[in-house]
Simulated scan of single mutants.
Amino acid sequence: MAYKIAIIGGGWYGCHIGLALQSLQMDVTVFEKADRPLHYASGNNQFRLHQGFHYARHHGTRIQSRDGFIRFTERYPNLSAPIKQNLYAVPRETSLMDFDTYKLIMVSSGIPFVEMPEGSPYLTNIDGVIKTDERVILLDNARNYFSQRLKGNLHLNTAVEAVSNSEDGVVINGVRYDYAIDATWGHYTKPPIKLIYEPTILLYYETSHDMPAVTFVDGPLSSVYPTEDPSIFTLSSVVHTPLGQFSTPEEAVRTRDDVTGAVSLAKRQAMEAQISENFPKFRDYFRFAGVQLAIKTKPVGNFDDRSCYVYRDRRLFSVLSGKIDTVFFAVERILASIETEQSNAGTPSIGPIKGDILQRELADKF
């Protein structure tokens, strides 16, 4: 049966879910309040398509990323590109685990890598380095792809003003839908768990050198990663990228929008100092180019869980995930929930099993 489904948010999850449902002949409408898809958090991050190497402390996220990486490259072969040299380095003093433990976790997770016995000429005070094949998202390609494939079903510059959710359907902006999916990461409806909203600052750097991607693991460390333009890299830090943590999205938006030049400079100095501890010539190879601001939504808790969750309230689903490569899990869980509901609809009937048993018993006597 074809359903009429509304999706709130035209980021990676909203667009992917919309496209997947559209391919199943669903009547899909994607609402995006910006003037282009992938405008907010989906277009303001490190554009990393990873395999789970920086989630050594959470098995579920690691496995979802491993499997999602393979599925993503198969489903969207032209929306990402390989990284020429992608390194994960375990610092000797600041990592939460030693190199041998880190390798053991990755081997047991079935994630392929090559150990670099000589380390890297750019890095110092390192316990060990591995090299692995990961990819960078081609953001402009992705925007064009979803705009073309979703066509009239993607409604840009369209904010969701009102939602009424019931057992029979969801009414959005006065129009009834069979189901609705909130892909705004708790900015419109709230999943039934405690969340924090984290405004962030991402730094951009230019280089004329052939530099590797470097991610320091595991713990409150930093990483430098290329964009789709190989001369432009991003610098992020688990400690210094956040601008605060808030219980409401409104507070996070205000903090993001109030960032001053002084705040930007302080963050830049802190992040450069942190990465220079193990990448001492970072400032020699990279030149600061600018900043990008966004908001992340995270579950509250002392764990490193960024895997995909789907919550349901009557006919309204809400999606929460920390990584782009888990989009497939969201679609599967939504469809499974709809299918279960529809298969259980109607009045149960009593089958002919008693008659079959009796007939077989009588037949055996003659």
Rank of each mutant, 00 (worst) to 15 (best):
L38C: 05
L335F: 05
R256I: 07
C308L: 07
Y122P: 06
D127H: 07
T207N: 08
L19R: 05
S42L: 05
R57A: 11
A159G: 13
D356W: 14
Y55K: 01
H16A: 09
E167N: 10
D67T: 09
D305M: 08
I357F: 14
Q22H: 08
T234H: 11
G68S: 02
L96R: 14
T94I: 11
D127A: 13
G186H: 04
R176Q: 14
Q64W: 06
S223M: 15
F99D: 06
G119D: 02
I5L: 03
P242F: 01
P348W: 09
I172M: 01
E134C: 07
Q51M: 11
P77F: 02
A294Q: 07
N165Q: 01
I172V: 04
T29W: 01
E74N: 10
G11N: 02
R287H: 10
I130W: 05
Y40N: 13
V291E: 12
G10K: 02
E251P: 03
T227M: 02
S42W: 04
I111V: 09
D284N: 13
V28G: 00
Q25P: 06
N173D: 06
N45I: 05
G110N: 09
Q51N: 07
E32V: 05
V239P: 05
M97V: 12
S307P: 07
F317M: 02
A266Y: 14
G346P: 03
L154T: 00
Y122D: 10
L320W: 00
E251H: 11
M106F: 10
S276A: 10
T29H: 02
T340P: 04
F72Y: 12
I172G: 01
E32I: 11
I172R: 00
I334H: 00
P242Y: 01
R135S: 04
V170W: 00
V136N: 01
P220M: 11
K190S: 13
N302P: 07
Q274F: 02
T241C: 06
T255R: 13
Q274Y: 03
I181Y: 00
Y225N: 13
T73D: 15
V214P: 03
L358E: 13
G18V: 03
L358M: 14
V129S: 02
R75D: 09
E115P: 04
T200M: 08
Y76E: 06
R314I: 00
E93Q: 15
H59G: 09
G152T: 11
A2F: 11
D35M: 10
K151S: 14
G52Y: 03
R333W: 08
F216A: 05
T234R: 07
I275R: 02
K4P: 00
E198D: 06
P280W: 03
F328C: 04
T347H: 13
L139W: 08
N278T: 12
I324F: 14
